[in-house]
């Protein structure tokens, strides 16, 4: 039961301790009460930040911090969905303050570029190797919660890959049209829950510059026609988009393991050795 509740840490937004019990709050709004103290989870979830005696937070869901406004007052952390949690003064000076001081403006994402929470990098969770990230996956994902999960999973297990997320297929088409061979993504994933996704797929596959890029269509569940049209339009794979989040993560993991670890992607300057 407990193992199951924390099997996919990416799904957990934060945990709230309550004497010997802990409420686990998930990104999708679900919460469960477990008969373990917060300390137990702090040991299991190594990347999470203990911001308060009663709160353990997944840095991926953090939007901002507010310093303690005055002497004996607590600071706070605001989450992406607007919720705030307290940050005790002692923990502020021990954990948060040093993190924020090391944060240089250059480490912040460029404007308009969708990246994960800057606080993830601060917490030392994501090892960024910008010079090595020559292999990139571009992904269209309209659902914010799901794109957050994609970022977390990639950061945890395939950090040598670069990830670029787009809200729409159109956005991806615009960017790809303007880049040179050396910046091409190695894999593209399209979000079939968007109306224009098949059109984007056809545009990519009918263009001799892009047709060699493996393109995977995540097809909306139950939309069998779309899946078949995906193959007819040249998709390298069609995957049915699971609606429940644990299953979504499992599918992502299998997709990543195959495309990012086993399959060889075409790319200019492919460094894979023989």
């Amino acid at each position: 039961m407990i193992q199951e509740a924390i099997q996919y840490p990416a799904l957990i937004k934060y945990l709230k301790g309550f004497s010997n019990y802990t409420w686990v709050h998930y990104g999708d709004g679900r919460k469960v009460l477990l008969a373990k103290s917060l300390v137990f989870f702090e040991k299991k979830l190594s990347g999470f930040l203990r911001v308060h005696k009663t709160a353990l937070v997944n840095p991926h869901y953090i939007a901002d911090f507010q310093a303690p406004p005055g002497h004996k007052m607590a600071g706070s952390v605001s989450l992406r969905d607007g919720e705030t949690l307290p940050v005790s003064r002692r923990r502020w000076s021990l954990i948060i303050d040093p993190l924020l001081v090391t944060m240089l403006p250059s480490s912040l994402p460029a404007h308009g570029e969708p990246v994960s929470s800057p606080f993830v990098a601060l917490a030392g969770l994501e090892k960024k190797h910008p010079s090595v990230a020559s292999r990139r996956m571009w992904m269209v994902m309209a659902d914010e919660l799901k794109s957050g999960l994609v970022q977390q999973l990639m950061g945890e297990k395939w950090s040598q890959w670069g990830l670029k997320l787009f809200d729409t297929g159109n956005g991806l088409q615009k960017v790809i049209a303007g880049i040179g061979e050396a910046d091409m993504p190695a894999v593209i994933v399209l979000d079939g829950s968007q109306p224009g996704s098949l059109l984007t797929l056809q545009t990519l596959k009918n263009n001799s510059r892009f047709r060699f890029i493996p393109t995977i269509l995540l097809s909306s569940a139950g939309n069998y026609d779309q899946a078949q049209q995906g193959y007819a339009s040249g998709a390298n794979s069609v995957i049915v988009y699971p609606t429940d989040l644990p299953r979504f993560i499992q599918v992502l993991e299998k997709m990543f393991r195959y495309w990012l670890s086993v399959a060889s992607a075409p790319q200019a300057g492919n460094v894979r050795s023989c």
Partner: peptide, 21 residues
């Protein structure tokens, strides 16, 4: 066996679903 990037790119261009070395 081939991890020649030309073999890989050309195979994809010719419509393979995937290329595994």
């Amino acid at each position: 066996n081939s991890c020649n990037s030309e073999d890989i790119a050309e195979s994809y261009d010719r419509g393979v679903a995937s290329y595994v070395v």
